[in-house]
Computed example of a mutant assay.
Amino acid sequence: MTTTYLHDKFLSIILKYQNLSKPVSILIAISGGKDSLCLIKLIEDFNYINNYFYNIQYIYIDHQWRTDSKQNIQHLLNYIGMTNNDIYVYQILKIHMSESTIRKIRYQIILKHAAKYKTQIIFTGHNQTDQLETFLLNLIRGTGSEGLSSLPFIRQINNNIQIIRPLIHISAGDILWFCHKFNLPIWSDKTNYYYSNSRNRIRYELLPYLKVYFNPKIECNIINFLKLLSIENEYIKQNAIKLYIASRHSYYTAIHYQTIKDQHLALQRRVLNIFFYYNFNKCLDSNIINQLIQYLYVQNQEKTSIIWEDLTINIYRNWIYVQ
């Protein structure tokens, strides 16, 4: 079997982040594009030598955006059939044109499937270019520092499932070279060229423009920035979790705001976000966060209530709680 430096890189990733003494079951989310085929090849070659993954499943989500989706599915069925592993195809019955809506639905399906079949690891084919595009998209949308680094290498979903992006530090050019070297049958997705899609416009217009007129090394510089940002975010996140644990009520769904009041604003915001996401699966609006923090410093405070979506947020007697 011919190996390449991408095989070596994939091996180093598995050795670094996984305990090879304990075989695991994995689920690979695929599309049919070059990233997916590169990932399939790397995983199958790795397992052929090491026999580490005792159960390999593939999952494909049909968005019904394309007229050739049925042909694409058949193409994947034929290709995965040669691996002797299972592939599961899910179809989104209602056609959503919103990219963010599709992404949420896709992840919900993948996570439910992983939980159903007791899969420990989910592999996705996100590459370095995807990371750059996501950074620029989130920057344009006005997200915070945590959102700017929203494609981490590993994301722990719960105690049983984690998402790993083994190609996240590999460029699209290297992946394309790999596919050509092994003559992998890439299925071209024409929706990747629709300029109505913000990600495509960033890929084909904004990034090339920045490289030509501002800095030819813009991609490398952004990647280095994201690495530093990820380290700093992790530090803030760990401290915010500790502060949240120290401030939450032992029985009720509430946090003691006097505990967080004297902390840095960055930690206050993170603790509030953790509280609402953990208990209500909601991401706080920045305006609501600002209101809550403002109320923390009101002297002789009477009971204050803020209505947000379907929640009534109360601030009273040193506590923030929800009805």
Rank of each mutant, 00 (worst) to 15 (best):
L93D: 13
Y321F: 14
I122R: 01
I241E: 08
I170Y: 06
F123C: 00
I49F: 15
H264W: 11
S250W: 15
Y5I: 11
I110D: 10
H7L: 03
S305C: 12
N160Q: 15
D68H: 05
T191C: 09
T83D: 04
E309I: 06
K34R: 12
I121C: 06
I307D: 06
Y194K: 13
A266H: 10
S305Q: 10
E309S: 09
C283L: 15
N183T: 05
Y58W: 06
G81K: 02
K112C: 06
Q299K: 15
K242E: 11
Q162N: 12
F153I: 12
I315Y: 03
Y195R: 10
Y252G: 00
N50A: 04
I307T: 07
I289S: 04
E99A: 14
I306M: 06
I140D: 06
T253S: 07
K242V: 00
F275R: 05
H180W: 04
N50H: 14
V89H: 04
Q162G: 06
L243N: 08
Y90K: 13
F10Y: 14
P152C: 04
I73K: 13
Q263K: 15
K16Y: 09
Y52G: 02
N138G: 09
C220V: 14
Y316S: 11
N160C: 08
K22Y: 10
D45Y: 05
N318P: 02
Y277V: 00
T124F: 02
G33P: 08
R155D: 09
I30E: 03
N127V: 08
I43G: 02
L292V: 10
E44N: 14
K34H: 07
I260G: 03
G173K: 14
H180T: 10
Y321P: 00
Q162P: 01
I161Y: 00
P152K: 01
L206W: 08
P23S: 05
K104F: 07
I218L: 04
K34S: 03
L296S: 00
Y235N: 11
D68V: 08
F275E: 00
L111H: 12
I61M: 00
L151P: 03
Q128G: 01
R201S: 15
Y204C: 03
I105A: 04
F214N: 13
Q108A: 11
L167W: 13
D35T: 09
R141D: 05
G32Q: 11
I43P: 07
K34C: 08
E99Q: 11
L111R: 10
H264M: 10
T83V: 08
